[in-house]
Design a binder for these strands. Structure first.
Lengths: 132, 132
DNA sequence: TTATATCCGATATAAATTGTCGGATATATT
DNA sequence: AATATATCCGACAATTTATATCGGATATAA
């Protein structure tokens, strides 16, 4: 319960790795996968996804790889999690009503309050706060 | 990602239900399961678990059921989640080191900071804040 | 004595997460 | 032009976690 996914963790590991290098040097999937003991194919998917979201930039071909494209200071954690994993919410019912309890549920509103607190908390931290 | 489990949701639904009744009246598993469309056996387990944690009290026999035992005002959400689901943490590595990345991980400390923020947020709300 | 309730371990099912495979496309280097 | 190294990407498989079910025991009010 309340866990981050590997995809998010791998994304942050990769970003932190890239941030430790000079601005125009690139990092290949293999380099990062080896360095942090991450399954290559998974990391590949993860990096491709971040590239589509314009967080990082892909350089094709030999000597290619990825480098940071966005200003990490300007991406808060709530945005980042949503870019990487989709909608945030303690329960699915906030964005998808397919729940047996929905009609009778007596805790939907209260849980929305916790949810709002959680999202605010994530909004108050930038990706850079994590990768620095 | 970052979801509550049904067990937690069912627990809160049941508590809120009981809180809406007079202090010494009991609510049976069947009553609650029917009312909120929750699978009976699952709810039974959930309530038994809360009884073991002294959050509620079980009355055996016919006309039995459960009633609230603890002061919900004095149980914060972090405690409550831990009683119902076990240790809280955005990653398992905070209480169980069985992770391929643990030796090389470059985000453990930063994620611990997010984690601390999250737990503080849950500490700042009582179960009663939710069930009232 | 009977009916209704909790109790509880074992097991099955379903869903989500995590990881693998195969083959395509892009491009720097030789 | 050929080659090697890299990203790209859909389909699929395995694993883990969460959710639900089953069977039978115990407690007690009526």
């Amino acid at each position: 319960m309340l866990k981050l996914t590997r995809k998010v963790e791998y994304s942050l590991i990769a970003l932190r790795h890239m941030q430790g290098k000079s601005i125009d040097s690139v990092s290949s999937t293999k380099e990062i996968a080896t360095r942090y003991n991450i399954p290559l194919e998974i990391l590949a998917k993860t990096l491709q996804h971040m590239a589509k979201e314009n967080i990082i930039e892909a350089i094709n071909g030999p000597r290619g790889g990825y480098r940071i494209k966005a200003k990490l200071k300007n991406i808060n954690l709530a945005e980042f999690f949503e870019k990487v994993e989709g909608p945030l919410g303690l329960s699915d019912c906030f964005y998808d009503a397919n729940c047996m309890q929905i009609e009778y549920c007596n805790i939907r509103t209260p849980i929305q309050r916790i949810n709002a607190n959680m999202i605010n908390m994530f909004r108050s931290m930038s990706v850079q706060d994590i990768t620095n």
